[in-house]
């Protein structure tokens, strides 16, 4: 019993920090891609063309109705099989083993995009019509209107939802450990299994995630204050 517990928290500090870094990399990339997917999804949902609207609605509804863990496992297998089929079609034989990092980012971004679609759609709908009409009246091009008017006007409404999604994404990265990619929680599981100090290592995992989420909350609060500058203060209950 004693000879196994000689390996302690300190011996694993290096791999665990490495894992935490990987987790952050996955989260940042997935968030960025999810944000783009969300923008595309939101514009599709608001588009005047019905088939495009339908497609985006199916995407955001189906993804939000199925548990994330199930989606991650399903997309993990579907992703590698689809790529194998694709390369075989191009005449390259054999299996494609996709890089775990790419899968993790892809799957989380896909899920994140569905939620982001809803957040951004709501925020865009909340922009007063007159502001958009004013942009049109001044002869803004679609792109100028988007980045000069739509984005700054939507951000105050979208940011609370976006910060919520970021926190959820951080917590969802732990699910990646189920498909065996060595991010933070997978490393923790290995450490716990090899030292048998389960309590210690899972508590440590909790502390690390808590540090990440709490510092993100602080950052988002500052960001929110920045995008809300010039707007009337919201009274807090």
């Amino acid at each position: 019993m004693d000879n196994v517990s000689q390996e302690g928290l300190l011996d694993w500090a290096g791999p665990i920090l490495q894992g935490a870094l990987t987790t952050l990399e996955i989260a940042v990339l997935a968030y960025a891609i999810g944000l783009m997917l969300g923008l595309i999804g939101a514009s599709a949902r608001l588009s005047p063309w019905a088939p495009l609207r339908g497609l985006a609605t199916v995407y955001s509804t189906a993804v939000r109705a199925v548990p994330e863990l199930l989606l991650i496992i399903l997309l993990y297998y579907a992703g590698s099989q689809a790529l194998t089929a694709l390369t075989n079609a191009f005449g390259l034989p054999g299996q494609v083993a996709i890089n775990g990092f790419v899968t993790a980012v892809g799957v989380l971004a896909f899920v994140q995009g569905a939620y982001m679609t809803e957040v951004l759609r709501g925020a865009i709908l909340a922009i007063p019509r007159g502001q958009l009409e004013a942009a049109d009246a001044f002869g803004f091009s679609a792109w100028t209107r988007f980045h000069r008017i739509v984005v700054p006007a939507m951000l105050p409404n979208a940011l609370p939802g976006m910060s919520n999604l970021w926190l959820i994404l951080i917590k969802d990265t732990a699910l990646i450990s189920v498909i065996g990619f060595s991010e933070l929680f997978f490393t923790i599981q290995q450490a716990a299994a090899s030292t048998r100090a389960h309590f210690l290592f899972y508590a440590a995992a909790g502390v690390i995630y808590l540090i990440i989420t709490l510092s993100s909350t602080a950052l988002f609060t500052r960001l929110e204050r920045r995008v809300r500058r010039g707007l009337p203060h919201q009274e807090e209950a």
Binding site: T173, Y202, A205, L214
Partner: peptide, 16 residues
């Protein structure tokens, strides 16, 4: 609210 549910589950099942 600040830690993943999966981590909590492992903490209680394996840890505790």
């Amino acid at each position: 609210r600040g830690t993943p549910l999966l981590v909590q589950l492992f903490f209680f099942y394996y840890g505790v």
